[in-house]
Computed example of a mutant assay.
Amino acid sequence: MLVLAATPIGRVEDAPPRLASELATADVIAAEDTRRLRRLTTDLGVEIKGRIVSYFEGNESSRTPTLLADLLDGNRVLLVTDAGMPSVSDPGYRLVAAAVEKDVRVTAVPGPSAVLTALAVSGLPVDRFCFEGFLPRKAGERSRRLANLAKEERTMVFFEAPHRTEAALAAMRDAFGDGRGAAVCRELTKTHEEVRRGGLAELVDWAAEGVRGEVTIVVTG
């Protein structure tokens, strides 16, 4: 069985109750960052008995066949990323697809998600939404992506790096208009959590002063 386990996006006490038991009993744990995994297990007071392997963007393609072989041998493989749910802008999709193709059971330990948390606290419509992940880094590609979303009616959720937040907001302003409502959610569930709400032009001015931490942007459709 392949188990996708959500990990805290901030406070360790937000870890789902099942996470500790899954970490303690898994035959193999595939972790985006093995050092962060060790810190997490220490904080949770969990002793790992299974084998730990790294599974991140750089080795996801090459490591997937090995993990699939573990699954086909009857092992319980637990997949965790640095924060949030695997496969959501994090490693996981390739392994899930490979497991499904071989009729391996896939389940999940539900828990923290920056996408849903930002959406819930944004104050924007939540009845219909779409997740757009990270925008392209290159300005031209980013502008084209946003132009294609200009008429999207659903609320949109984006991930962004702090040093690119101002540029991303400016590109959204240009594509969607100055007054389009949005919220920048920074350091969700952490000590310095901040949710800044307003029109895109207003948020661009705010971001010009510099943005720190993990960023999720929610924009009205």
Rank of each mutant, 00 (worst) to 15 (best):
K151L: 15
P91F: 01
G140V: 12
P136G: 05
W206K: 07
D205G: 10
V157F: 07
V3F: 04
S62W: 14
M172H: 06
R36S: 08
F158C: 05
F158N: 03
E57Q: 14
A118D: 05
I48G: 07
F158A: 06
A26H: 05
T42L: 12
L44V: 09
I29A: 00
G199W: 09
A168H: 04
V211D: 07
R164K: 05
I217P: 07
V3K: 05
A26S: 09
R196Q: 15
A31D: 02
A175S: 06
R186D: 15
G221C: 06
V80I: 07
K138C: 03
R39T: 15
E101P: 12
V12F: 14
A175H: 05
E152R: 12
A183C: 10
E152S: 15
G84I: 02
R11L: 14
L188I: 13
F159E: 02
C185M: 10
I48V: 15
A118P: 07
E209M: 03
T189N: 13
L4E: 06
L95S: 01
L23T: 04
V53P: 14
L37K: 05
C185L: 09
R197H: 07
L4V: 04
T81A: 09
K49A: 14
E214R: 06
M172D: 09
P8L: 08
P16T: 00
A208Y: 01
V53N: 13
A182R: 04
E47Q: 11
L23N: 10
A69V: 08
L2M: 02
F134I: 06
P86T: 01
T191L: 15
Y55T: 14
Y93R: 00
A171L: 05
A114D: 09
P136M: 07
S54A: 15
V80C: 00
A171G: 04
V100L: 11
T64P: 10
G199N: 12
A108G: 11
N148F: 04
P16Y: 00
L40A: 09
R128I: 10
R145I: 05
R76E: 09
K151E: 12
V157N: 02
A24H: 00
E214M: 09
T191P: 06
P162S: 01
P65R: 08
L135E: 03
L19R: 01
Y55D: 15
R212M: 01
S61A: 12
K151P: 04
L71S: 09
A161R: 02
N75F: 10
L124W: 01
R180G: 00
P112N: 01
T41L: 09
P110S: 12
I9S: 07
A69E: 13
R180E: 02
F56L: 12
G84A: 02
L149M: 11
H192G: 04
